[in-house]
Simulated assay, not measured.
Amino acid sequence: MTKTNCSLMSILILSLTVSFTATAAEPVTPKLTDKLDRLLREEMRSIQSAMGQIHSAIVMGHHDDVADNAQRIHDSFILQQSLTEQDRKDLMSAVPKGFIKLDKEFHQLAASLAEAGKGKDTKEQHKLFSKMTGNCIQCHSEYVSDRFPGVQSLKE
């Protein structure tokens, strides 16, 4: 998979990251095709599972598990194998630019967390995991508020 394709694939994961806009965006979910919605939900379930495993691994000092699960999030494996060129076009027309920025940040945080796991740096793992969690909250409040109306923005 090319770097461009990986970047486009990771856009769907964006709904787990911090928003750069000052006001809540219009929810993205209604703009997605049925296939993109299904793939996004699959990916979110995978990320939710990995985040739970990372939390447990951090508090138990299982650094290799932190690294493996963070890398799995970074790689967005399911989506990299599932999007067609038309899916990519549909996705790009459904999501705002801020959503794309959030995706890039979230994946960078996951890559950094994988490195902190490899380095057995618990303090850095905690810091990065907390940022990733904040990104999830912010994205859910900005871009999927229709699915998560009870999530409030962390912005002041």
Rank of each mutant, 00 (worst) to 15 (best):
H74M: 14
D146T: 07
I100N: 02
L154A: 06
D90C: 00
K104P: 01
L109H: 05
D121V: 07
R147S: 12
K155G: 01
K127A: 08
K104C: 06
V59P: 00
S76T: 09
E124D: 02
K131W: 00
H126F: 15
P96M: 06
M1G: 11
S46L: 13
A50H: 09
I13G: 06
Q138L: 10
E26Y: 01
D103R: 04
I73R: 03
Q86V: 10
E156A: 13
G98Q: 07
P149C: 07
K31D: 10
V28P: 00
A111K: 15
L91Q: 07
I47T: 09
N5K: 15
M60A: 14
D68C: 09
A22S: 08
L8V: 03
M51H: 04
L154R: 04
H74Y: 14
K35L: 04
I54A: 07
G52C: 12
M9A: 14
D75K: 06
Q80E: 08
L12W: 03
D90F: 04
F20T: 00
Q86E: 15
D64I: 15
Q48A: 12
L32R: 04
A50G: 01
T23R: 00
V59T: 09
H63F: 15
S15Y: 09
D75G: 02
I100T: 11
L16W: 09
N5V: 03
H63C: 15
Q71N: 10
K35H: 14
S93T: 14
R41N: 10
A25S: 14
K127Y: 01
T29W: 08
H140F: 14
E124A: 05
E42C: 15
I100H: 02
Q53M: 14
Q138R: 05
N69F: 11
I58A: 03
S49L: 13
A24G: 08
E142C: 01
S56A: 13
D121E: 12
P149I: 09
D65L: 07
P30Y: 12
A67T: 06
I100A: 08
L83F: 13
C136Y: 05
S145P: 13
Y143Q: 05
S19R: 06
L40G: 12
S15A: 11
D68Y: 10
H126A: 06
K97N: 09
L8G: 03
D87F: 12
D121T: 08
T33P: 04
Q71H: 08
L14F: 02
K89W: 12
K3N: 12
Q71K: 11
E142A: 02
R38D: 15
G117T: 05
H63I: 14
Q53A: 13
E43A: 05
A24Y: 10
S15I: 08
F148Q: 05
N5Q: 13
E156P: 15
T122H: 09
K120R: 15
Q86T: 14
M9D: 06
K97W: 00
H55S: 09
V59A: 00
I13Y: 10
R147V: 11
K123S: 07
M60P: 00
S82W: 06
C6Q: 11
L79T: 13
Q71W: 07
G117Y: 02
G98C: 03
T33C: 12
G98A: 07
